[in-house]
Simulated assay, not measured.
Amino acid sequence: MINFFEINQIKYSRKETIMMFHGWGSTIDSQIQLGNQLSELGFKVVIPEIKYHDSRQALNNHFDQKVIQTYFWKTIFETIDEEDELIDQLNLQKENTILLGSSMGGFIASGMFFSNTNYAGLININGSSSYIYSEKDFRKKFK
């Protein structure tokens, strides 16, 4: 079972749910303000805990070079692999779900979206949908 945070509103005027994924060095708590703003627009908003963050085997220093090299892509792909479990657990329909991700969360949201374009939409903030280019760029930075 994957833990998640749901922004609670009394009434949702939209049929879509926004599933938000945070960035590499952040947590669910860092996304609550944006989640509240989206909820005020009528969306149901859920923020799943990402592996190696929050209460899911959180790493001590996400910005240590060895930690990044070992866990960055692992985190992205393991989270993408949890897609069906998340959708089932939250009782969502993909066609009514908008995937939103910032930074690493944008990688995750894009990976889910492009593996199944039945989703209602994709919002990628400072993330990448081009894994090959991104990996080449990261390798240049971390030589």
Rank of each mutant, 00 (worst) to 15 (best):
K11A: 13
Y119F: 03
D54E: 14
E49S: 08
I76C: 11
L122H: 13
Q93A: 09
S13E: 01
K141R: 14
M20V: 04
T17R: 03
N124W: 07
L99A: 04
Q89I: 11
Y71W: 05
K66N: 05
L41C: 04
L41P: 00
Q93S: 08
Q93T: 02
K140L: 13
K140W: 10
T79P: 02
Y131R: 07
N124H: 04
N96Q: 10
H53Y: 02
R139Y: 13
F63L: 13
F138P: 07
E78D: 08
N36M: 06
V46C: 02
E49L: 02
I125F: 11
K94M: 01
Q33M: 06
E82D: 15
T27K: 13
I98K: 09
I28E: 09
D29K: 12
Q89L: 14
Y133A: 12
N60M: 12
E6D: 04
E16S: 01
K94V: 00
M1F: 15
Y131C: 11
N91M: 10
N124P: 07
Y133Q: 13
Q9S: 03
W24M: 08
L59G: 05
V67S: 13
N118R: 12
E135S: 08
Q37I: 06
N61E: 05
E95D: 12
H62M: 09
F4P: 07
G23Q: 05
L99I: 05
E135N: 05
G111H: 13
N126F: 09
K143V: 14
K143A: 11
K94Q: 03
I7F: 02
G121T: 09
K11M: 08
S134I: 01
I47K: 05
T70N: 12
E40Q: 07
E83M: 13
I87M: 05
P48G: 03
I98V: 15
I125H: 13
F113W: 14
P48N: 05
K94R: 06
Y52R: 06
E82S: 15
E40D: 10
T79R: 01
G25P: 01
G23E: 07
N116Y: 01
G111Q: 10
L41Y: 00
D64K: 04
F21K: 03
T70V: 14
S26C: 04
E6Y: 05
Q33N: 11
A120M: 12
T79M: 11
E83W: 10
N116I: 02
N91K: 14
I123K: 13
F138Q: 13
D137V: 15
E135I: 15
S55E: 13
V46T: 11
I68N: 01
S39A: 11
K136N: 14
K15C: 03
T17L: 00
D64N: 12
I76L: 07
P48M: 06
L99F: 00
E16G: 01
I80Y: 02
S103H: 12
H62S: 09
S129T: 12
L100Q: 12
F21W: 00
K94Y: 06
